[in-house]
């Protein structure tokens, strides 16, 4: 199956299909449904230096062809991850990539250092785009200067593959991508959720406890695709594309627009076996179009 291999910097993935942080737990939640060893990679739940309880209920509102969430990075902290979760998932034959988040640059650095100690985690995804935490998170990803600062600080202490997850809630996502590329990021992943809101007309109340939350699902796909294309034309580092991918055709579209690999997010909730169908669908597409290696289609949008 070498024809499905792709490279994110020096990190080789057995195929381009990975699962998005915050939609796939630690992988084990899906072990009843799929063979995790067939995934290109698993981006595990956003991890912070200290445990976080997350936001109050309600944290979710369904919207046309999508959903809003305001989970707020509920997790037990990086030490719990390293001691209790990592041993259970480290031996899967896939790439385990930890999504790292924080409220201060120092948080990101310390959390990344702890993850760097874990042999079977070859990469981190620096989450500078979470819209659901009061301090930090997305604030780092909405200006070139702050994105550059946190990337530079983590790059100093983290020598393995560094992926930076970008926020779409900016005026110029290509500019942010260039800023983190300049600071030594090996890759960018995009997009995180769009800041959105839902209101209950009857009660006049917001549907989320936090009022606003992050929008995901098929409804964001056209915007995500546009942003991948813009970033592809602005940077040289590989892109991991995501935003509403719900079948193999969507995944191919993101690759044609410039993604080296893709993440499947919200659609895992609808069909927990979707990632396997996308792997098979990509293979079918390659057969139909006589493509020898999937990397041949990256950025091959004909304009």
């Amino acid at each position: 199956m070498d024809r499905l291999k792709v490279n994110i910097g020096s990190l080789e993935l057995q195929n381009p299909v990975t699962t998005a942080s915050g939609t796939f737990g630690y992988g084990t939640e899906y072990a009843d449904f799929i063979d995790l060893n067939r995934l290109g990679g698993i981006f595990v739940k956003g991890t912070t230096l200290e445990p976080r309880q997350g936001n109050d209920y309600p944290r979710m509102a369904e919207t046309p062809s999508g959903m809003l969430n305001s989970v707020g990075l509920q997790n037990k902290g990086v030490n719990y991850f390293a001691e209790h979760i990592y041993p259970k998932i480290k031996d899967y034959n896939t790439r385990i990539i930890v999504n790292v988040s924080g409220s201060t640059v120092e948080d990101y650095v310390k959390c990344s250092e702890r993850i760097a100690d874990l042999d079977k985690v070859p990469a981190i995804e620096l989450n500078i785009s979470c819209p659901n935490i009061r301090e930090g998170g997305m604030a780092f990803g909405t200006s070139c200067q702050s994105a550059a600062n946190v990337t530079r600080a983590v790059r100093k202490v983290y020598r393995k593959t560094l992926i930076v997850k970008l926020s779409p809630n900016v005026t110029d996502i290509a500019g942010i991508a260039r800023a983190v590329e300049d600071e030594g990021a090996d890759s960018v992943s995009l997009v995180n959720t769009f800041l959105g809101m839902a209101v209950d007309a009857e009660t006049r109340k917001p549907k989320l406890s936090t009022v606003t939350g992050g929008l995901s699902g098929p409804c964001i796909k056209p915007i995500a695709l546009r942003m991948v294309w813009q970033v592809y034309n602005a940077v040289k580092i590989p892109i991991i594309g995501m935003g509403g991918i719900s079948n193999a055709a969507d995944a191919i579209e993101f690759m044609l627009a410039g993604s080296t690999a893709i993440q499947i997010g919200t659609y895992n909730f609808i069909d927990p076996a979707i990632s396997m169908k996308v792997v098979d669908g990509i293979t079918g597409y390659m057969d139909r179009h006589n493509i020898k290696s999937v990397s041949e289609i990256i950025g091959k949008l004909e304009v």
Partner: peptide, 20 residues
């Protein structure tokens, strides 16, 4: 209210004596 139903999305939390 929940999205996934199998512990991945963390949307349907309830405050308990053991946390969310």
């Amino acid at each position: 209210l929940m999205a996934c139903g199998f512990g991945a999305c963390l949307c349907c939390i309830e405050k308990t004596t053991r946390g969310n």
